[in-house]
Amino acid sequence: MGRGRAPAGGGRRRGPQSRLNEANVILAKEIIGRYPKARSATIPLLHLSQQQNGYVTNDAIAHVAELVGATSAEVLGTATFYEMFKFEPVGKYLVNICGTMSCQLLGADDLMHHAEARLGVRAGGTTADGMFTLEHAECQAACTEAPNMQVNYRHCHRMTTAAFDQLIDDLAAGRLDGEIPPHGTLARIRQQIPADKAAGVAPPDAPVEPAWMLAPEATS
């Protein structure tokens, strides 16, 4: 699909799809409604925009700012703090190889060298076909399974060079489409809070002592 592929000329993709589309605006409003203050939804909405466009566009930043009631500068300031937000197109698959201690002790450097050779790009680069971006990453909370890597943040444990080649072949052939969505899609299952089941937000300026603290009831 080449979703993250850089358009010819290397310029950023512009146009109406950079703002959140209609379905995503509905979702964004639902997410905002879960927080006592709209600005708390900034990171989830940036993820939503990245899911839609493959990376965070300027238009999306402006749109998220409108939705959460902040300035574009504030949203940009937040966005740039976090490693996962990309401001340029990246490959359909982001390949992150962990180089922190536990993985380094068990061969992360060899894995990285192999990956660079196999993909033909240095860490930080994207393959010419727009399929893979290779990155040097830090501890992925999988240290006992070293050496580790992630593809679009899906963990791949106890990697070998042979397993790496197989994985790249499978991804390129589309054999893992069901398991690993394109870059930007974080979780494929979202939290749903049905309106009739929601307890509702607890706004900081409404100092209500919770009902169960005032009159505890026994549960059966």
Binding site: I193, P194, W212
Partner: peptide
């Protein structure tokens, strides 16, 4: 848990009501 009435409004029919909101980080140790 929401569907079963274990989280959210009037949990198990009591006056205990609380939402648990799942929040996403974005990569920063």
């Amino acid at each position: 848990a929401y569907a079963a009435g274990y989280v959210g409004k009037n949990i198990l029919g009591t006056n205990f009501s609380v939402d648990i909101v799942l929040h996403w980080g974005a990569g920063a140790y």
